[in-house]
Structure formats: structure tokens, C-alpha cells
Design a protein around this nucleic acid. Structure first.
Lengths: 181, 181
DNA sequence: AGCTACATGTAACGAGTTACATGATTAT
DNA sequence: ATAATCATGTAACTCGTTACATGTAGCT
């Protein structure tokens, strides 16, 4: 249900087309939400049908026309009611850990290299987040409440990637050790 | 796709009924996979159809009969091939962060209490994992490779809950501050 | 008498993924 | 030429959630 609300939250600040939302999600929103282009288009269709958003078609020179969406009063109300409800922690479904559990079926090097590969992915993502932090949040004491909320989600992403890197290091070290048994 | 493989991995050690798998998942597997009872029954049906597992009905005194499943050679092959493929990092979809982004729509106390509630949930889960660690892995140096693999997933769960708790503390502190703007 | 645990399933729906379809512009 | 980016969508399928359906045994 939260993809709809994530879209509403994003449209709360600014009007976006489906394509723009998708790009925004692929970039900054990556630390707390992910959605494919198709999912976004479908969700926009649903939200428009229930009048939580409305659209306007903008012609562009040299480019295809854009259909930009804005949140309605009904949409703001819907989002607000949802914010007031409690949220459940995300369910963990990590393929890599299932593979670690089954690691004895493969050569040791395969799983070690795979963990190393994940370490690199998380290191890369961490540097992206840190770059955003430096660029957009150089002085935390000067942020408004709304900006602090956004910063808190970025800190969550930074914490997550750091934790993943630490775990990869720990796992590599643990599984590399010589084992008598 | 990985629920099927998670079940295969579990059945690799021991035969289980659908009900037993569900309980096992609710407990120890919680740090890397979650599935409902219905999902497990459906997946078992599929796996049996493709002959990756087979079943046996065991009558019990004073209790309903159990249908216990065992992995077949075909199932082991399927699992092994999957382990050799690379795994993508889990997609993050955290409702709480979407709510933090929309926090200005609600009274400040609502979001702070919600983060505090999450902090408690993660603290509780962390203590469960630490209890398992103390009980089952008192001496890491004496573990076999297979046991080390299991231990690595537990360490992943411990790291995750610790990271979540740290973030909740950071977020509460950040959003509680007096803000001039 | 009512709750929890044991035990298996069907049906419907919502969310997420993958493939397909179309067509213009810009950069290499 | 051909690949990438811009731009929107349909269709089919799989995965995850919720509700419904059934029945026994043991505990309070």
C-alpha cells in the first residue's frame, strides 16, 4: 500500500510526470523505496481514478508530451491519515543470506567472491549517499524541521550501507578461516 | 523466487511439514526470510509438482496427520544451481521512512512516538538474537564451516537490529531538537 | 465454555517483475 | 548507423497478504 503513499508524499512538494517520478525514485528515494517504471504508471492511474491526484498534459518542444500529476486535497487527506497509522518494520528477504546458508553446496570461493561483490555494491551506494550529504546537508544545525526529516532518511541509508559493509567484512573473515571440522 | 530455495535449503538438513517450516521461519529464519503459512503451503505444492521435493503422510496419535517433505536429488540440483548465480541486494521498502518524509502532516509527537515504538521492536528482536547467539554459538572457534555459515546469518540479524536501534536514536535526537525555521 | 496450539488447505486480491509495444530526439 | 534518453502505456505472470474453511487436543 505504501507505494501509493510514497508517490503522494513526493507529489506533495512538486508536480511530477510518471517518468520524473521514476527517475527521482531511482536516485534519492533509493534508500527507502524502490519501484519500477511500470509500477509507478499503474499506481498513478489508480490514484487518479480515486481523485487523490489530478493530471495535466504539458506539450514540449522536441520531446514527447508530459503528463504531470499534482496532489489534490483528497490526496493530502489520504496521506495524512496514513501517516497517523502505525507502520510495521520492513520484512527481511535477503537472497544472499539464503545462499550463505546453502554455501556448502558450492565451492568456498564462489560464496566469498559473492560477498565481496556485495561489499563493493554497498561501498558504491554509501559513497553516493555521502556525496548527497556533503552537497545538500553541510550544516545540520541550519535545517528546517521538514529538511531534518529528509536528512533523517538519508542518515538511515548511510547507516544501512555501513552496516552491510561491516557484515560483509565480518562474514568474509569468518568464512575464510581454516576450519578443522 | 527465493522462497522456494529457502524451503529447499531448510529441507536439505531435515524433513519438515508445512506447519513445522512455518514455525521454523517465524523463529530462527526471521533474520533473513519471512513467509506466511499460506505462502509456504502454496510453495510446497509447486515444489512437489516439479519433483524438487516429495512427501510422506505421517499419522500421529492425538494429533492431525502430518505431511512431511523431503528434498529430492532434483531439488538439491536446483538449489545448487541457484547458489552459483549472483544475488541482488534486497530492495528497501520501509514504510516508516515514507512516514518520516511526510511527518510535517502530523503532530511531531506522533512520529517521535512511532520511531520510539520501532526502537522497542528492534531492541526486543536484538535480545532474541543475542540469546540464540549465547545458547548456540558460545565458542566460534569450534564451529564447522556449515555452522559458521549459519552463524554468519545470525550475525547479520544482530547487525541489522543494532543499526536500526542506532538510527532510531539518531532520528529521535535530530527531530526533537528545537528548530528556528 | 473459550482459548491456544496443531495441522492443512482454497480463494481472492494487492504488489512487484518481466516482456512487449511505440515513437521522437540527441549524442557517439 | 546505433545506442541512450525521453516519454507513456498494456499484458501476463509471480509473489505476498488477507480472509475463509475445517477439525482435533489440551489447558484454564
Amino acid at each position: 500500500m505504501a507505494l501509493a503513499h510514497t508517490i503522494l508524499a513526493t507529489l506533495g512538494d512538486e508536480a511530477y510526470s510518471g517518468y520524473d517520478l521514476w527517475k527521482k525514485f531511482s536516485q534519492t528515494k533509493a534508500c527507502y523505496w524502490q519501484a519500477s517504471q511500470q509500477q509507478i504508471y499503474r499506481e498513478l492511474g489508480k490514484l487518479e481514478k480515486e481523485e487523490a491526484i489530478d493530471s495535466e498534459i504539458i506539450a514540449q518542444k522536441g520531446r514527447p508530451a508530459k503528463k504531470i500529476y499534482q496532489i489534490t486535497d483528497k490526496g493530502i487527506e489520504k496521506l495524512k491519515n496514513w501517516v497517523l497509522e502505525p507502520a510495521e518494520p520492513m520484512a527481511i528477504r535477503e537472497d544472499l543470506l539464503v545462499k550463505v546458508i546453502s554455501a556448502h553446496l558450492a565451492p568456498k570461493s564462489v560464496i566469498l567472491q559473492e560477498i565481496e561483490r556485495h561489499r563493493q555494491i554497498h561501498t558504491q551506494q554509501l559513497s553516493v549517499y555521502k556525496e548527497i550529504e556533503q552537497q545538500n546537508f553541510p550544516d545540520v544545525s541550519k535545517l528546517s524541521y521538514k529538511q531534518k526529516c529528509i536528512y533523517a532518511t538519508l542518515r538511515c541509508g548511510i547507516g544501512y550501507e555501513s552496516y552491510r559493509i561491516s557484515w560483509c567484512d565480518e562474514a568474509i573473515s569468518l568464512l575464510s578461516e581454516e576450519t578443522s571440522k
